[in-house]
Design a protein around this nucleic acid. Sequence first.
DNA 1: ATGAAAGCCGAGCGAAGGCTCAGGTTTCCA
DNA 2: TGGAAACCTGAGCCTTCGCTCGGCTTTCAT
Lengths: 224, 224
Amino acid sequence: MERFERILDTAERVFSEIGYESATTNLIAIQAGTSVGSLYEFFPNKAALAVALAERYTNRIGSLYDTLIVDEPNLAGPDLVSRVVEALDQFYREHPGAVPLLNGRLTSDELAGAGAALQRALVRRIEAVLSGRRSDVPGPRRQLVSQVIAEMTRSLLVLADEVPLHQRQAVVREIEYAIIGYLNMSIAEPPDHQAITAQTAPTRSPGPAKSLTKPSPRSRRATT
Amino acid sequence: MERFERILDTAERVFSEIGYESATTNLIAIQAGTSVGSLYEFFPNKAALAVALAERYTNRIGSLYDTLIVDEPNLAGPDLVSRVVEALDQFYREHPGAVPLLNGRLTSDELAGAGAALQRALVRRIEAVLSGRRSDVPGPRRQLVSQVIAEMTRSLLVLADEVPLHQRQAVVREIEYAIIGYLNMSIAEPPDHQAITAQTAPTRSPGPAKSLTKPSPRSRRATT
DNA sequence: ATGAAAGCCGAGCGAAGGCTCAGGTTTCCA
DNA sequence: TGGAAACCTGAGCCTTCGCTCGGCTTTCAT
């Protein structure tokens, strides 16, 4: 195996085991069966290790999306959401180091940028799907909705990752409900042919805002 | 002003300006018009500053929730969501330091615990509201749903905080749609009288999973 | 006025760890 | 086999803070 790859894989393991901050370049080098000196032949500094890792993850996740999204232009929305969310969950299960690295649980500097890059890449892909399927929704709004979906997915997958293992699948399912529910609420099919023409954010239109989720009268408690 | 308070307020400002990691205890002391020595009279170490700050924020946000939630047992769901989300948004606008401090954009150790404590407190409150209003939903599921709502709120408020100022309000509105949409999807009123009796997670029930969000046939693109 | 107790100060100690570079080892051609 | 170029090594340099502590200043009772 190439030295470069071996160092990077070791860094992945060490970071995921003890965290980026606690990991020392010396430890990574030794665990990789080499020395700090050699490590610094390949990586100009410690952060570069994390950045390289983040890029590797980002590329893989990007491909994942492309496989799932581009290849299935006819899949129903909810099914597509399920697929993508479950694939991402699987990816994070297989690469536990990716969660803290890409989702900012570590100090700022160049690392924050790596996580942000992944988010941007995903937002772009979600936006592409939305454009293809819901051209009735104005562009700027599609972008906003894509950002929100990407963020919901990211943060709820982190939650799934933190929750006890036997609850993980349940949380993942909730992510799907959350995304579908949000889509229904925010860019529901126009009531009549093409009613929605508002700009970025329809001042109050999308949600009928009926007293959904309100208790049925009979079950209301006598509080007071 | 008490020395203790002045130091804490200065720490709040310095942390929010240059971040927890970059902030040195010397700088905080000097900016507070005192010396490191005195700072360490009040706080046993640097982390204690952040923890004290986090506790102050947590208490205030807790009260905020209580004011909004406990006092309004009859408000319709969507209106309650609006209120809470907008109040939280306002709080974060007024206390920019609270966002990174409570939402983990900083290194682990005792700080992670502070953010987690806030989340737990909020989950508990959301769960209380849900219990009062939707006693038809099984307890464990209410807890899961509460966790998801708390997490959505947290992460999307962070997004609102990162987005250009003129988009902030739009993102906040999306948070409301997301929560309402999720509630509709995950714990919709039982179709008939009380159909849902499943345990933690109804294997596939909540979402009708019809092809919502699918394009109307006419607008489907010709992507091969 | 005086002494001592309480409070405050900040130079600098010590630990941690990222990174360097002088020297050692290996490779490989002649 | 000689030798030199390429490669590898890790002891330790050097910087950066968190935190301490010996001494200075203020306060206040006598």
